[in-house]
């Protein structure tokens, strides 16, 4: 059977002109390889001469400059449950393998700090403050796995433990657990620690309202400025390239589209992607060329401060949104998405 299959394959390959995939790709790109081949054949010695432009410029494309204005992620991403479980497991392993904490290097004997340390160690059994109640040495050190539904690997839980550790002195728990234990001298005294400032919430108000015009939304993702043009299509802000560089055009377009209220930085001088739009009918330009379509080259820009404002903009834009990558896919055309998707950051 194997032999039969091989024969079939061989016959099938002989039937048509077989060509491997990479060769097919290079053959399809004849616009450049033809020019390059022309250059390379004429002198093999000067190999680094770049290919020249096509000789007959009868066909042409209009050139646009676009700006991909983005706000980078502001906070760390949420860990996958497997990642956080792995990190907790490694921390507990570390407790088992590390040398003991050098207590007297950090707490002088018989000081309040030392007493507090002893109280806290009695409660959590380990110097680490955010791995839960676990002892790395001794008989039960093998018991380092957390049970089903335990919260120890959760980041929020760990943050809470750290905050609690810095706010409390270890007495609070003792008072609660036994009323009869109030005879100890510690129970009467109350050690006040300064309240610690809580971290800002990772989910903001704009997230809850799904306010796509706000830059405070989706702090873990990269947000991109998407605008609605005169025809009602959502796209990145773009304009005709005048007699200027792409970098200068990006600055101009940002000024015309978003207003002057944004502090932006155009990253580099090279475009990060392009989109080609073919006309149904080739049009004649003023210089007598056949224009077959429109090519847009996208420059990358970052917003540092401010907010877009479309009031009396020169490009005729009607609306704007700050969207993450997967939300952009729902708004733009399929063809546009195909050409922009690879230049947008996943996170």
């Amino acid at each position: 059977m194997n032999a039969g299959q091989q024969t079939t394959r061989r016959l099938a390959s002989r039937a048509g002109q077989s060509i491997c995939r990479s060769c097919k790709d290079t053959r399809a790109r004849n616009y450049a390889s033809a020019a390059a081949a022309a250059v390379q054949t004429e002198d093999q010695i000067a190999q680094h001469v770049p290919p020249v432009a096509q000789i007959s410029p009868s066909t042409s494309y209009a050139v646009n400059a676009g700006v991909v204005l983005s706000r980078p992620p502001q906070i760390t991403r949420d860990l996958h449950p497997f990642e956080s479980a792995f990190f907790l497991y490694q921390r507990r392993l570390n407790e088992r393998l590390a040398l003991p904490f050098t207590r007297y290097f950090y707490f002088k004997k018989r000081t309040p700090a030392d007493l507090e340390w002893k109280r806290k160690m009695r409660q959590r059994l380990t110097p680490a403050r955010d791995i839960g109640r676990y002892k790395g040495y001794g008989e039960e050190a093998w018991n380092d796995e957390i049970l089903v539904g335990a919260k120890e690997s959760d980041l929020q839980w760990q943050v809470e433990r750290l905050l609690k550790d810095s706010e409390q002195s270890g007495i609070e728990g003792q008072v609660e657990e036994g009323g009869e234990g109030s005879s100890t001298p510690n129970a009467g005294k109350k050690v006040e620690h300064e309240p610690v400032e809580r971290p800002m919430p990772r989910v903001t108000e704009a997230d809850l309202k799904n306010d796509v015009k706000s830059l405070n939304r989706a702090l873990q993702r990269t947000l991109y400025l998407l605008v609605k043009n005169k025809e009602g299509h959502w796209m990145f802000p773009q304009d005709k390239l005048a007699n200027e560089t792409l970098h200068a055009a990006a600055h101009r377009i940002l000024g015309l589209a978003g207003g002057v209220n944004m502090n932006t930085w155009v990253v580099g001088n090279v475009p990060i992607g392009h989109h080609q739009q073919d006309y149904l009918e080739p049009t004649k330009t003023a210089s007598g060329l056949n224009e077959f379509g429109l090519k847009t080259f996208f420059m990358k820009a970052r917003i540092m401060a401010g907010q877009a404002n479309l009031k009396d903009n020169k490009l005729g834009l009607t609306d704007f949104k700050w969207l993450a990558k997967d939300e952009i896919q729902k708004e733009v055309d399929r063809k546009y998405w195909q050409s922009i998707k690879n230049m947008l950051a996943e996170r």
């Binding site: 390059a36 990269t222 990253v267 996170r347």
Partner: peptide, 28 residues
């Protein structure tokens, strides 16, 4: 490291990228 992955590396790539037209072969 997360900032590097999400922001710094793409920006450095854009800043230092040198474009060569298709068919270009570097001098030997």
């Amino acid at each position: 490291e997360q900032t590097y992955q999400s922001t710094i590396a793409p920006d450095v790539l854009t800043l230092t990228y040198q474009h060569y037209p298709p068919g270009y072969r570097a001098p030997k």
